[in-house]
Amino acid sequence: MHVFDPDRPQAIKGRGAASNPEGRFETVRHQVEDDGWQSALLDTDAPRPRTEVTAERARSVITRNDSPDIHFTQAMNPYRGCEHGCVYCFARPSHSYLNLSPGLDFETRIRAKENLAEVLRRELSRPGYGVSPINIGSNTDPYQPVEKRLRLTRGALEVLADCRHPCTIVTKNALVERDLDLLVPMAERRLVQVFISVNSLDNRLAAKLEPRASAPHRRLRAIRTLADAGVPVGVLVAPIIPALNDKDMEIVLAQAAEAGARCAGYTTVRLPWELKTLFREWLALHVPQRAEHVMSLIQQMHGGRDYDSDFRTRMRGQGVFAEMLRRRFEVACRRHGYGRARDLELDLRQFRPPREASPQGDLFRTD
């Protein structure tokens, strides 16, 4: 008989994390205790937490970035937290700033910026605003499941399309196909580029690593759909986890190229802050026989530590294994004719600041 043990983390179907550890800013610790009744009377699995979405009013939505290893200076994230539940997500520790856990809270307690489009329009219309492409989805996925109902990402795209502002999109959800009616005209004006993240073609592994993201084959189909419609699309083999999914790098690049991807990029797994503990817990639950080997290779890429925040190496690591990954990636890219992720130049000259509707002013419009 299987008995639920509250003191021992257990895999939860449809979720990436198996526990809900306190964030690093919390001063109170919580511990589950079993009074004996449930474990004695019930044959049950670990409880399955439901997703809760809370609306919030954002004061600003465009964030600025000056990190030398990130190739965009502006970003926007419609949601805080992500139901995809990718256990390796480097954004998990950001939930600590909300007094929530980077574990299950990150994927079950989502904050939605309900006034996203309104605030975006206001920020773009400010005097002196400097135009540069806005990356949508740099932290959490803009097409996670709740987007199907709330349509916040679509609202932001409508604002960007209306004022002809360039943007890039990063996602691992085929829901991006829904917005082709906006993306195609933007692509014709060289105002958008989409990147689909695919780090493995193993459906069983993906179901554990990224439990609520689109299946790998479905993401490849989304690449084909976008490419066939004329939307420039690239593939991100990210993150690569040594001894877990690195074997799929070449086949992902090959199939993405065949589907129409024009450029490619990759990163290795990053384990900042509380993510170290969550990822070790996931390894122990799902691949215990390889857990030590995986962590040993990760540490070899980060100077003997689980994570090194140095801008020069944090995205791809260093050392023998990291160098091997780099060479494999470069060879595969040459074989399949990929350009670099930065090769497409989006047009900044077409931008026109949003303005209030004015029938009289429209008499003098020339566009």
Results as ranks from 00 to 15, higher is better:
Asp343Ile: 04
Pro9Ser: 07
Arg48Glu: 13
Ala332Trp: 00
Leu124Met: 03
Glu114Cys: 00
Leu253Trp: 04
Leu201Ala: 01
Glu258Thr: 03
Gln289Val: 10
Ser132Gln: 14
Glu118Arg: 14
Ile70Trp: 12
Val320Thr: 12
Pro354Lys: 01
Arg262Phe: 01
Pro232Asp: 07
Ile251Thr: 14
Arg316Asn: 12
Thr63Gly: 15
Leu278Pro: 04
Ile110Glu: 01
Cys163Arg: 07
Gly155Lys: 10
Arg59Asp: 13
His30Glu: 13
Asp162Trp: 02
Glu281Ile: 00
Val32Glu: 14
Arg164Ser: 13
His84Glu: 00
Arg190Gly: 10
His302Thr: 01
Pro102Leu: 08
Thr225Met: 11
Gln289Lys: 13
His336Ile: 00
Glu114Lys: 02
Arg8Trp: 04
Arg48Ser: 10
Pro49Asn: 10
Asp181Cys: 05
Thr63Ile: 05
Asp162Ile: 00
Asp162Gly: 04
Phe195Pro: 00
Gln300Gly: 13
Gly81Lys: 04
Met295Gly: 06
Leu236Thr: 09
Arg316Asp: 13
Val184Tyr: 02
Asp248Ala: 03
Glu250Thr: 09
Asn173Leu: 02
Lys148Met: 12
Pro239Ala: 04
Asn77Ser: 10
Arg178Thr: 08
Ser125Ala: 15
Pro232Trp: 11
Val176Asp: 06
Cys86Pro: 01
Ala161Arg: 09
Pro211Asn: 07
Glu188Val: 11
Gly81Tyr: 00
Gly317Tyr: 04
Glu118Ala: 15
Pro272Phe: 09
His336Leu: 00
Ile241Thr: 08
Met301Cys: 12
Leu191Ala: 05
Phe106Arg: 02
Val252Leu: 05
Leu236Ser: 13
Leu285Phe: 02
Arg270His: 02
Gln144Cys: 05
Leu180Phe: 10
Cys263Thr: 13
Ser132Leu: 00
Ile12Leu: 08
Arg218Ile: 06
Pro242His: 11
Glu107Trp: 01
Arg334Val: 01
Ile240Met: 12
Pro127Glu: 11
